[in-house]
Simulated assay, not measured.
Amino acid sequence: MTLRQQVLVLYLSTSALDSPVVGWSRYDGTGATRPTTGDSDEPPYSDGLEALKDGWRLFQVSPLLPPQAGAEYGTSFLKHEFFFEKLS
């Protein structure tokens, strides 16, 4: 049996794994779901710790970057990005 990778990207409200999910993407390399990316209205987990408890392995956390002076309240990309994987 060949293992296939599933990838879950969670954007959290802060850099803490127990903070609420504000955005997400899911990619299923097993071919078990169509489409391969998630498009639900509800996040798959309420926070990053729930994903860990469900067997997802954390393999990347975005670096923490301080805001540029004068841009503290501007909007931009979601900066608290966590990548998880499962092998199935």
Rank of each mutant, 00 (worst) to 15 (best):
D28I: 09
L52I: 06
S25P: 01
A71E: 12
F59M: 08
D41S: 14
T75P: 04
V61W: 01
M1V: 14
P20D: 09
A69S: 15
S88R: 07
S40N: 08
L12H: 06
K86L: 07
T2A: 14
D28Q: 06
S25W: 09
G31M: 09
Y73G: 10
Y11K: 05
V21Q: 05
L12A: 00
G29W: 02
V61K: 10
H80T: 03
A16W: 03
R34H: 15
L52G: 01
L64S: 13
T14C: 05
H80A: 03
P44E: 04
S76C: 13
A32S: 14
W56K: 05
L12Y: 03
Q60G: 12
Q6L: 10
K86E: 05
P67I: 03
G31R: 06
T30W: 04
E81A: 12
E42H: 08
P20I: 03
G74I: 13
S62D: 08
G70N: 04
G38K: 01
T2K: 11
T30M: 03
L78N: 12
L58E: 05
A51E: 01
P67W: 06
V21K: 02
S46G: 10
A16P: 05
G70A: 07
Y27M: 13
G55I: 02
A69L: 15
T37S: 14
D54Q: 07
A16C: 06
L78T: 11
T75E: 13
Y73K: 15
L17H: 00
A71T: 12
L3M: 11
G74M: 15
V22W: 06
S46C: 05
S76F: 14
M1F: 13
S88F: 11
R4K: 11
Y45M: 04
S19F: 02
P67R: 09
Y27L: 14
F59P: 00
Y11P: 00
L87N: 08
T33M: 13
S46T: 12
V21C: 00
Y45P: 00
D39N: 14
T2C: 07
L52F: 02
F59N: 10
A51V: 00
V22D: 02
P66W: 08
A51H: 02
S62Y: 01
A69P: 10
S15L: 09
K86A: 09
P66H: 10
Q60E: 15
S88P: 08
D41H: 10
T75R: 11
F59W: 12
F83T: 08
S40P: 02
L65D: 09
L8E: 03
G48T: 03
K53T: 09
Y45D: 01
G29E: 01
V21G: 05
G48A: 00
M1D: 15
